[in-house]
Design a protein around this nucleic acid. Structure first.
Lengths: 128, 128, 128, 128
DNA sequence: GTGGTCTAGACCACA
DNA sequence: GTGGTCTAGACCACG
């Protein structure tokens, strides 16, 4: 699991870290129980401040994807299953993107095919 | 066309304005040629500063959704058709969201159904 | 000689009028002595305010390309020959454009070929 | 790298800043990785408001000439290579200037020599 | 310390 | 009356 920061990106660094770990989990590279590097190690490895990594880990914990304790450090602990709140959040994030696509003339099938392409790029693991 | 700002939101005000106009276009409420309120009018109506509205209008212009002239102010002028760059941008925005959904155990069909729900909420207009 | 205004352009209308007349002269469509429409007529023809046309005509007069008098209205009266001041003005306008081209990796031949293409699009009349 | 503002010029201040940085890059004085002064430093140095500098930096970012991050501020990051859209933009900017030159009796060789003079004033660096 | 966002004013060019 | 530019402040997120 490598984390690669694009310092020219507009996306905050802590969010790049967060997203790459999320994507690692989605891809199946990071499985429940796998441990993440310590905050200090990861920070020095990618050359950022410790509290930038800490912020990323914190949000991952809040999302229910990792757990942190003093003994084992941070490790993957995915609590699967989504509730209505999660769906609302997804809709809020997706709505402006879908609207933009519609404005630019994308039709439903094109959009779905795009989503499928992205979904399949994660290995298509659907837990069934 | 009402614009409603949530001043407690993390989303910048200018982006809320931008998104609501984009969604208005996607919904078909705003059609080519329809004029938007003047920067100052909209600003005073929703209780924000002129520059905040100006920034939103400017980005909409850059996206090719509105045009601006000094006589008539801003009006809808959608240049449809998306290029590869637009698709890349879409993928970059969608990838972390799809990854999050996968982590939470959402499968491909559920995700597609969610997208379809959002798409259809705009009226499902695919060509015009 | 038709004048066609793009109301969505960022270029001021009076400048569009000015440029199209300049280009008409460069193309040889407008020759010395040819008369231009009256300010009132041109304004109503293209649907703009009279003083917008007046401003365009005024600048053309200042450039030494047209003359205006009460008897004949406005007509083409090109005073050829450029002085050092004109060259300085040209350099000031061209410098940032050339710099931009260099930044984007355009080389000298490509730039010259572009200039030649534009020059030839005016008929390549060189008065010799 | 000095930036010198002419407060009496018709050219907006933010555009003067932008152009001088572009010309610095074209001249090779500003190379990839070189950092620019922070928005506030440059603003106070040349005696203008922060926002004015910010607007210049923003447009340079949009042009793909600089990158910005919160740790190190802005620095040169030129993405070379121009597309058709860039060429169209160049043509739109150059056409009225070439037309003006033709009206004043400048011939093709004179114009090309002028362009070459300007190009060479940047050091004639064509590839690197 | 950096840029990003926002406010409340002002003046100007364009139409 | 419209947007465009500019100023002089302020607060916030990121690092």
């Amino acid at each position: 699991m490598f984390i690669k920061i694009d310092f020219t990106s507009d996306m905050p660094i802590y969010e790049q870290i967060k997203n790459q770990i999320i994507e690692g989990i989605a891809r199946g590279e990071l499985q429940n129980g796998d441990s993440l590097p310590s905050i200090r190690d990861l920070a020095s490895e990618i050359g950022v401040n410790m509290h930038t990594v800490a912020k990323a880990y914190n949000e991952l914990k809040d999302m229910g994807l990792i757990a942190v304790n003093k003994k084992h450090g941070a490790y993957i602990a995915v609590s699967k299953g989504y509730d209505k709140e999660f769906l609302n959040e997804m809709m809020e994030e997706l709505t402006p993107i879908v609207a933009k696509a519609i404005c630019k003339g994308m039709n439903k099938n094109e959009l779905i095919r795009l989503i499928e392409t992205i979904f399949d790029s994660f290995g298509g693991r659907e837990d069934e």
